[in-house]
Simulated scan of single mutants.
Amino acid sequence: MAIQPLTVRDEYITYIRLERNYSSHTVSEYTTDIDAFLSFLAVEGITDLNDVTYTEARLYVTSLYDSGLARTTISRKISSVRSLFKFASSRYGVTDNAFKSLHHPKKQERLPAFFYEDEMEQLFKACEGTDNKSLRDYAILEMLYATGIRVSELISIELEDIDNHLGIVLVMGKGKKERYIPFGSFAEEALGTYTEISRPKLMKQKKHDKLFVNLRGDPLTDRGVRHILSSMMERASLHSKIYPHMIRHSFATHLLSNGADMRTVQELLGHSRLSSTQVYTHITKEHLRDTYMNTHPRA
């Protein structure tokens, strides 16, 4: 028995609207997606849902790509048609293998945003100063960039976690995993100045061992660090939006760009999987290509 696409379409839209109680917006999206697919079938001369095979399904998805639609839109349209066939399978026994076998297009991975080295220099210059707040902010930026630690790890550091003699800091990462991270002379100097001069004055009468404190002497919060970094961006006249992880991304990108091996960067970042670190290689490759295209005479 031939299964008319329009008949199934009308029954399915009624089903999701009345029985599944989908929102009007969702019903509208399903209707649009299914109607587009049925138009494709009409062009292909297919009048029976039983005649739709994997070949037609692939052809339809190819046409979606050719029309320049975003991957997320294509993925949604596949889901809509797949749902239609699932409904037709349960009600009319139509085989739904055609779209069941189709994989959703992979989501495009957004490369982590980072600062170039000269932009980092602008940030450091923006928070230079001799007042207590500037000394603290400078130490925060040095620590984030020198170690690549997360903000949650930064605000949990206590005084005893810093070993200035060895130049390392003990941090508590995700899953309560501890790791030691080295830091250089710039961070060491900034931390020394902050802990000896600025922190005691900011602490006032407060008593706790957290390394970084706010202007009232209380332990610094995640929100506080975000506010500090945003203020730095304004003073540095950098126009991109900052978020704390950008410093971490910059740390990893600059290490890899300057020859650090992947395993070392993985350990420093506290990644449990190497694949989490490998994303930064894409950034360095993009940067290499851009540099080449902008500088080579025959690029």
Rank of each mutant, 00 (worst) to 15 (best):
S28D: 13
F251A: 04
T284K: 12
E189S: 13
N21A: 15
Q122L: 14
Q205P: 00
G167I: 06
S24D: 15
Y54A: 05
A260T: 07
D161G: 11
D137F: 06
L269P: 00
T277A: 04
V151N: 09
R248H: 08
R136K: 07
L123I: 11
F186C: 08
P244C: 05
T72A: 15
F183W: 09
S237R: 12
V27E: 15
H287Q: 14
R91V: 14
M120C: 13
E267H: 11
A42Q: 13
T53Y: 01
K125M: 06
S240H: 10
S152R: 04
L38F: 04
T31Q: 14
A36P: 02
K177M: 02
M1Y: 10
T62V: 05
E29S: 14
L135P: 00
Y138K: 15
T73Q: 11
L41A: 06
S272W: 01
E189T: 13
P105I: 09
L288K: 13
R110A: 09
I197N: 07
G270E: 02
H239F: 12
I13V: 13
M120S: 06
T221L: 01
F124G: 08
N50C: 03
L141C: 03
S275Y: 07
F115E: 09
K100H: 11
T253G: 04
L84C: 03
R110N: 05
M143A: 11
S134Y: 01
